[in-house]
Simulated scan of single mutants.
Amino acid sequence: MTHRHRLAARRRHETIAIEHEGQKYKVGLGREMVCDGSCGGSVRFGPIAEVFISAQKVNTQADVLAKDGAILMSLALQYGCPPDVIAHAMKRNPDGSPASPLGRAAAYLVEEKV
């Protein structure tokens, strides 16, 4: 079994707002701080290692499914699955756009070249 990268207790978190099929979602992205050399050196932020998704209407089916999917995406990232593999595995609409809010989040990971 592959080893899961456990995240540090403190990390950077950024939030983006997306809309998918008329529903509004907030996507939270967590990155670990990486210290170059000793901790007295420069600090940069590593790749996105966790994803949170919340629908505008809390505790609806859309909200629950988005949150559960984000947990699975986070685990995949922490086990070393590349973001482009995750994004490629997501269902697409006939025009090639992501078919779900989770797919939109995965596409964002690739677009940002995390």
Results as ranks from 00 to 15, higher is better:
Arg11Gln: 06
Arg12Met: 05
His13Leu: 08
Thr15Cys: 11
Thr15Asp: 11
Thr15Gly: 03
Thr15Ala: 14
Ile16Ser: 11
Ile16Glu: 13
Ile16Cys: 10
Ala17Leu: 14
Ala17Gln: 15
Ile18Cys: 12
Ile18Leu: 15
Ile18Pro: 14
Glu19Ala: 15
His20Asp: 08
His20Ser: 13
His20Met: 14
His20Gln: 13
Glu21Arg: 15
Glu21Asn: 09
Glu21Met: 11
Gly22Ile: 09
Gly22Arg: 08
Lys24Leu: 09
Lys24Val: 05
Lys24Asp: 07
Tyr25Ala: 03
Lys26Trp: 02
Lys26Val: 09
Val27Cys: 03
Val27Glu: 01
Val27Thr: 04
Val27Asp: 01
Gly28Gln: 06
Gly30His: 09
Arg31Gly: 01
Arg31Met: 09
Arg31Gln: 15
Arg31Asp: 01
Arg31Phe: 01
Glu32Lys: 04
Met33Ile: 08
Met33Phe: 11
Val34Cys: 05
Cys35His: 11
Asp36Lys: 06
Asp36Val: 12
Gly37Glu: 09
Gly37Val: 11
Ser38Gly: 10
Ser38Asp: 13
Gly40Phe: 12
Gly40Asn: 14
Gly41Leu: 08
Ser42Glu: 15
Ser42Asn: 15
Val43Leu: 15
Val43Phe: 15
Arg44Phe: 11
Gly46Val: 14
Ile48Val: 15
Ile48Asn: 01
Ala49Tyr: 01
Glu50Cys: 07
Val51Leu: 03
Val51Ala: 00
Phe52Leu: 05
Phe52Cys: 00
Phe52Gln: 04
Ser54Gln: 07
Ala55Phe: 03
Ala55Cys: 12
Lys57Ser: 12
Asn59Lys: 14
Thr60Gln: 06
Asp63Met: 03
Asp63Lys: 04
Val64Ala: 05
Leu65Arg: 11
Leu65Tyr: 02
Lys67Gly: 13
Lys67Cys: 11
Lys67Ile: 06
Asp68Trp: 08
Asp68Val: 10
Asp68Gly: 12
Gly69Ile: 05
Gly69Glu: 13
Ala70Val: 08
Ile71Gly: 09
Ile71Arg: 15
Leu72Met: 10
Met73Glu: 00
Met73Thr: 00
Met73His: 03
Ser74Pro: 03
Ser74Gly: 08
Leu75Asp: 13
Leu75His: 09
Ala76Glu: 05
Ala76Asp: 06
Ala76Val: 01
Leu77Ile: 02
Leu77Asp: 00
Gln78His: 04
Tyr79Thr: 04
Tyr79Glu: 15
Tyr79Cys: 12
Gly80Glu: 07
Cys81Ile: 14
Cys81Pro: 02
Cys81Ala: 12
Pro82Asn: 07
Pro83Leu: 12
Pro83Trp: 06
Pro83Ile: 06
Asp84Thr: 00
Asp84Leu: 02
Val85Tyr: 10
Ile86Asn: 00
Ala87Asp: 12
His88Thr: 04
His88Pro: 00
Ala89Gly: 08
Ala89Cys: 02
Met90Phe: 04
Arg92Leu: 08
Pro94Arg: 06
Pro94Ser: 06
Gly96Ile: 12
Gly96Asp: 06
Gly96Gln: 05
Ser97Pro: 06
Ser97Glu: 11
Pro98Glu: 12
Pro98Met: 10
Ala99Leu: 12
Ala99Thr: 13
Ala99Glu: 12
Ser100Phe: 14
Ser100Gln: 12
Pro101Ala: 14
Pro101Ser: 11
Leu102Trp: 01
Gly103Asn: 04
Gly103Val: 04
Ala106Phe: 03
Ala106Tyr: 03
Ala107Leu: 10
Ala107Pro: 02
Ala107Val: 03
Tyr108Ile: 07
Tyr108Ser: 04
Leu109Tyr: 01
Leu109Asn: 03
Leu109Cys: 10
